[in-house]
């Protein structure tokens, strides 16, 4: 057992925390991010056999980054009520890009985001997972879109099947991008 996406999960969490602390005192901001980073390191050190699920559970127990940021009493946090619309940022852009280029990482970032609804996350993850589960190893999402354009030109039913599979991450990314523009139209702002 191992946690291949531990770094992406942790850095994603800390980035959301740092973003929530925008506008607060720089020293307090750095201190909290360092304290939380140290907490995660201590919690991981106590695990004998770490998995991605363990790392996600550590972050989950810490609480929502926005709630922690609010505890600091930063100018931004104070000005934002608990139900303030979430501001989308580089996390969502990275999630869309990596859904095509490195699906597992893209899927994790998608799940970490608060812009998409649970339903949208499930749909996008399921579409991307089909390609991954049907025999495309970790590096395949890179070549998937390429196969999608090259293989059908060779003719026959099998290449079309492979080509369709390869194009699915693109479909998942397009869906996420479409839902993101819908969210923006309904009041979610860009940072």
């Amino acid at each position: 057992m191992s946690a291949p996406h531990a770094t992406a999960i942790i850095e994603g969490y800390l980035a959301r925390l740092d973003l929530g602390l925008l506008g607060s005192d720089p020293l307090r901001r750095r201190e909290l991010v360092e304290d939380v980073r140290a907490h995660i390191a201590e919690a991981r050190a106590g695990l004998a056999d770490e998995t991605d699920a363990d790392v996600l559970a550590i972050c989950d127990r810490l609480g929502e980054p926005a709630d922690l940021a609010r505890e600091v009493g930063s100018a931004t946090a104070m000005a934002q009520p608990a139900s303030a619309p979430y501001v989308w940022s580089w996390l969502e852009i990275a999630a869309i890009a990596l859904t095509v280029m490195a699906w597992p990482v893209g899927a994790i970032l998608t799940l970490l985001s608060r812009v998409w609804t649970r339903r949208e996350k499930v749909i996008a993850t399921a579409i991307g997972a089909v390609t991954f589960a049907m025999g495309f190893p970790l590096s395949a999402p890179f070549i998937g879109p390429l196969l999608g354009t090259l293989v059908p030109s060779l003719g026959g039913a099998a290449p079309i099947f492979v080509g369709t599979l390869g194009a699915l991450p693109l479909v998942a990314a397009a869906y996420l991008a479409y839902r993101l523009t819908r969210a923006t139209a309904s009041g979610v702002r860009f940072a």
């Binding site: 909290l32 304290d35 907490h39 919690a43 127990r61 810490l62 709630d67």
Partner: peptide, 25 residues
């Protein structure tokens, strides 16, 4: 982290572990 573990032993004391850090600060 030691504080979080000790307080976590008491049910209902810490709803989210991270809140202890802004409090300590």
């Amino acid at each position: 982290y030691e504080l979080v573990q000790r307080l976590g032993e008491v049910d209902g004391m810490l709803t989210s572990e991270g809140t202890i850090y802004p409090l300590l600060a």
